[in-house]
Simulated assay, not measured.
Amino acid sequence: MVEQVRADSGATSTVEAAAPWGARRRAGRWAPGEDARGRSTWRRGRVLAALAVLTAGLLAFHRAVPNSVGRLGSLLEAFLPWLGLVVVVLLGVALLRRSATALVALLLPVAVWVYLFGGLFLSGAEPGAHDLVVVQHNVSDENTDPAGTARALADAEPDLIALEELVPPALLVYEKTLASDYPYHAVRGTVGLWSKHPLTDARLLDMKPPGIAEAWSRGLRTVVHTPHGEIAAYVAHLPSVRIRASGLASSWRDESAGLLGKAIAAEKLKAVILLGDLNSTVDDRGLAPLTSRMNVAERGFAFSFPAARPLARIDQVMARSATVDHIRALPATGSDHLPVAARITLG
């Protein structure tokens, strides 16, 4: 709104009176920091701020998400680290909108994510005298190059190599290729352990869910006689899970994890190492019978599946009365999983 005002000198000056917001918007003029609707940097972006708080809540209280419907809690926990990407997207939109409210709110999910996963980026402790290096790999029953896979695993120079989905005649190839460097091995069903140290008392581990009727042998327990003492080594391959329209189908895996957890709880040897394809991440409550009893990797993400574009680490190394210092993914083999290597400190 413009008024013509005549000054005492007779000159005419132009004064812009306070115009309503609608007039300023039509004229394309608003105060610095305001958007096209006249909102300041603190008034806009409230929806983004709410989404940031929701993301922080899911990260911090993921156990509160119920599993009763479609096992949504386990599904969220299987991909929990990827909520960090949601934070990145919200940050980009907040910067684009120049929303101070959203930027402040985003500090909350950033802090929670760093608390949960930031330590995994740190380097592990220096190798010590009581360390073991172990490799875990689901070699795939469709692997067309078992000899190349065996050589690739041996190149990491581990003390122990745990394999799943061992099928004839590929098993014979693994035995022959690894024999020179790993003179001790034990195989039960479709899982096996190769070792530089003597193995004794190898036996089949029964962890088959009651609902599986066909033959199913995916568990092994043996004793490894290391220079630092005896270790009970468990190799396991838990049932697969499926993502369906109804949610996550994981009941067999959860039942098998419970049976495996009971076996480890009853183990008389103090030091225990578990290696296997557990078909879930350590954040998933479905593995609580194991993660509540054993230490998991303190450093490293080591996403292992699928090999082409790894989204999660479902190949695990856990320990009791020992520390899994660092875990890393190894280069791809002929499997749909990546191998993982971990360093374990005994005691």
Rank of each mutant, 00 (worst) to 15 (best):
Leu108Met: 14
Ala179Met: 09
Gly73His: 04
Pro169Val: 07
Asp155Asn: 13
Val87Tyr: 00
Leu75Tyr: 06
Ala125Thr: 13
Trp113Cys: 00
Leu72Ala: 15
Pro127Cys: 08
Leu160Met: 11
Gly92Val: 13
Leu120Tyr: 06
Val86Met: 07
Phe117Tyr: 10
Gly70Phe: 02
Phe121Asn: 04
Leu80Ala: 03
Val88Met: 00
Val110Phe: 11
Leu160His: 10
Val110Gly: 12
Gly119Thr: 03
Lys176Ile: 00
Gly70Thr: 02
Phe121Lys: 00
Leu80Gln: 03
Asn143His: 07
Leu163Gln: 12
Asp159Tyr: 14
Leu96Glu: 01
His130Met: 02
Arg98Cys: 03
Arg97Val: 10
Gly148Ile: 15
Thr101Tyr: 06
Ala78Pro: 00
Asp159Pro: 03
Leu75Arg: 09
Ala147Gln: 14
Ser180His: 12
Ala170Val: 12
Val93Leu: 15
Ala105Leu: 10
Ala156Trp: 09
Ser180Tyr: 02
Pro109Met: 12
Ala170Gly: 06
Val135Ala: 10
Ala100Leu: 12
Leu122Arg: 13
Val134Arg: 10
Ala102Met: 05
Asp155Glu: 15
Trp113Pro: 00
Leu76Glu: 05
Leu153Phe: 14
Phe79Lys: 01
Leu72Asp: 00
Gly92Ala: 15
Gly118Val: 07
Glu142Leu: 14
Glu126Ile: 02
Thr177Cys: 01
Pro81Leu: 02
Leu76Ser: 04
Gly92Ile: 06
